[in-house]
Design a protein around this nucleic acid. Structure first.
Length: 401
DNA sequence: AGGTATTCACATGAAACTATTCTCTGAGTTAGG
DNA sequence: TAACTCAGAGAATAGTTTCATGTGAATACCTGT
């Protein structure tokens, strides 16, 4: 029996730290949600009329990432759904995440996705948008029903394609005879509705609820609660939970991040054969989470993006800050070398802005007075990740030296 | 010295273009009656 | 004549280019002392 065989043997023998890993995944909905009783009650109050097929007020929920918005809504919807089915009420709830690429990030696709929820398929392209609307309307109006439509990360949708679609959605009700639809918007962006068309704003946010961030103590409790279900007893070294929540609280009370961190730490601990999750595993996890996030976002980028990033990496050892023009020059020569076609500076500028959004670089727009205005760019990852990325890019772009 | 005006090197916006994928429609073609 | 094929028109979308306009402050250029 060879090494690998032995490895699997050991793997089987070694008992897992986990009792139930799914508890630490973001899809998990806990039995009870702590520190959100108030908000839950409010949401419930607002949506309750739906059970009597009376249209509830449209609802708008704000809060930063990891404050339990999505979780709470899903929780409420689940209970409403249960109540509805046991009382034979025709209530349907649809949850859509508007950020998901190729699912609900355009007007056409959003409606197409809704149609799909009603069990019909429409082609992904080829039909005019109003045709899609018509199909949707007739589908909706076939029977008397109440529909709760949850649009998660609705700010992304509005940012990308404008607020016209939201206006259309709010007006659906006046087109329908039998059904009624209630919109529940969820947004990470606290000022999102400020720059919305006033008509949309008033009808969309008839009710508003804000989810405040958790503080470090609350995150600790949340983590403990999950950890109790997820891990065996005494699998966690004291102090780990505290530190984990401190990481998350430092951001802005992002509970999802904290839970994720804990899961990764546990995985690392398990892989290293440890029977306990210790602080050092947590530190390692933090690094891994960070670098995974960045590396993942890079390998999914198209070639041109990668080439531009590679240009940045080429300059970066030489100085701390550099400017759009410098990167563009390097980029052009790289393009010539690898005979890719050259993008305009306009485009490169946009791509740099996207890198900034992704957190790969830190860009600040500065004015150098007589010498123009530009982005002052610095890499925001540390050197060892940096090297990894560079290797990765060289491989994927087939270039060396 | 102090105050304006210029000027650079991009940023930012809007519109238009390109290529790809897909539907729908109607003309032309084919096979069977 | 019904069924089939296939090209062409029209849509949606992503990625890009073209054209146009905006911008903050270091410098150049005045001005009056």
């Amino acid at each position: 029996m060879l090494k690998i065989g032995k490895f699997f043997e050991n793997f089987l023998k070694q008992d897992s730290l986990f009792l139930d890993k799914s508890v630490l995944l973001s899809s998990y909905v806990p039995e009870e949600i702590i520190f959100r009783e108030e908000q839950l009650q409010e949401v419930a109050n607002i949506l309750a009329p739906a059970l009597k097929i009376e249209k509830p007020s449209n609802l708008f929920i704000y809060g930063k990432t990891g404050t339990g918005k999505t979780l709470s809504v899903r929780y409420i919807l689940k209970y409403m759904h249960d109540t509805a089915t046991s009382n034979n009420i025709n209530l349907k709830s649809i949850y859509l995440n508007c950020k998901l690429k190729r699912v609900a990030d355009t007007e056409y696709r959003l409606i197409a996705q809704l149609i799909k929820e009603f069990g019909q398929e429409v082609p992904a392209t080829g039909l005019p948008t109003d045709e899609i609307y018509n199909i949707f309307y007739s589908l909706l109006d076939k029977e008397k029903q109440m529909i709760l439509l949850v649009l998660d990360e609705i700010d992304q949708l509005a940012k990308k394609i404008g607020d016209e679609i939201l206006y259309n959605l709010t007006r659906i009700n006046s087109e329908l005879k039998n059904s009624q639809i209630c919109l529940i918007g969820i947004s990470n962006n606290l000022v999102f509705s400020e720059n919305l068309d006033p008509r949309v704003k008033s009808s969309l946010s008839e009710e508003e609820i804000v989810f405040p961030p958790y503080n470090a103590l609350q995150i600790q409790d949340i983590l403990r609660k999950r950890a109790n279900i997820a891990f065996k007893k005494d699998a966690i070294e004291p102090g780990v939970i505290e530190k984990c929540s401190a990481y998350a609280a430092r951001e802005h009370g992002d509970a999802r991040r904290a839970i994720n961190l804990l899961r990764v730490a546990a995985e690392i601990a398990e892989r290293s054969g440890s029977t306990i999750i210790s602080i050092c595993h947590l530190d390692e996890a933090e690094q891994k989470v960070e670098s995974d996030k960045i590396i993942n976002s890079i390998i999914n980028q198209p070639k041109q993006f990668q080439l531009i990033l590679y240009s940045i990496l080429l300059i970066s050892p030489q100085k701390k800050f550099f400017f759009t023009g410098e990167i563009y020059d390097v980029y052009i020569s790289l393009c010539k070398q690898s005979k890719l076609n050259v993008l305009t500076q306009r485009r490169v500028s946009d791509i740099l802005a996207e890198f900034d959004m992704l957190g790969i670089i830190k860009a600040k727009i500065i004015s150098k007075g007589r010498y123009g205005r530009t982005r002052e760019i610095a890499l925001s990852v540390d050197d060892n990740i940096n090297l990894k990325i560079k290797e990765l890019l060289e491989k994927s772009l087939h270039l060396s030296n």
